[in-house]
């Protein structure tokens, strides 16, 4: 079996290393070996102290995001066969690094929660009644409007691709703004008015300069850049209406 050299960025503050450093590992691989498989190999065979997140290994749980040769990727969905020469693995960019490849997701979650990412509708919750059987009606065409934006797995790759988030972590960022837009576009939702103040902020849609790399790296083709920039149109409309209404 051929081997490939992996350079992994290590950060072990407890061992007294207050700056990250690179460590090389040689990994046997074949056509099916993913970056995640390689990390598991390191942990199980070479160095049990290597820390990283992973879970589903089928690109749906969003745990295993890392920088592979400077580009944000899901480890389970990137294969060693696709890389010439050594492969550099680092923690997702623009986040505080806690240990090795583990980043602090706290701010990401705060941003998600800030946009009220749930269906807001005044009609009575059927949870109250024993016999409630009525769903909302929503045609496939109505669903089509937001479906793509509902595919976000919260992996955070888009934040690592976004220099604006890197420069200002207060920027709500691609995933959160996409989620807000997803609910704003949902024909069942009535919460747009409540969400717009967040979108309208400087740290809302207007921090985006349409670099577009977020959509490039999105492993689920959600196209957050489109959502954010559609959000700008909505935000502009909202602010104009606000001016006319006084």
């Amino acid at each position: 079996m051929t081997t490939k050299r992996l350079s992994i960025q290590r950060y072990l503050p407890e061992q007294g290393n207050n700056t990250p450093y690179w460590q090389d590992f040689d990994i046997p691989f074949d056509d099916s070996t993913s970056v995640l498989d390689a990390l598991n190999y390191v942990k199980e065979e070479l160095d049990g102290s290597l820390s990283y997140r992973w879970s589903c290994r089928m690109a749906i749980c969003g745990s295993c995001g890392v920088m592979v040769n400077n580009t944000p990727k899901l480890g389970c969905q990137s294969f060693l066969r696709d890389y010439e020469g050594p492969v550099k693995i680092a923690p997702l960019a623009h986040f505080p690094v806690e240990k090795d490849l583990i980043i602090d997701m706290g701010l990401f979650l705060d941003h998600l929660a800030a946009v009220q990412p749930y269906l807001i509708n005044d009609s009575r919750l059927i949870n109250d009644s024993e016999e409630g059987t009525e769903t909302f009606k929503q045609t496939p065409a109505q669903m089509e409007k937001y479906k793509q934006f509902a595919g976000c797995i919260n992996c955070g790759l888009c934040y690592s691709a976004c220099p604006q988030f890197g420069l200002n972590p207060e920027f709500l960022g691609p995933a959160a703004l996409t989620l807000a837009h997803r609910y704003n576009l949902d024909s069942r939702d009535q919460g747009k008015k409540q969400r717009m103040p967040q979108m309208n902020r400087e740290e809302g849609v207007w921090s985006c300069t349409f670099v577009g790399f977020c959509s490039e790296v999105c492993p689920k083709n959600v196209d957050p850049a489109a959502a954010v920039n559609q959000g700008k149109v909505e935000s502009a409309k909202d602010m104009l209406i606000g001016i006319f209404k006084g």
Partner: peptide, 9 residues
């Protein structure tokens, strides 16, 4: 205390 390393852009 959590000891994070924050790489500046």
């Amino acid at each position: 205390k959590r000891t994070s390393y924050f790489p500046e852009l």
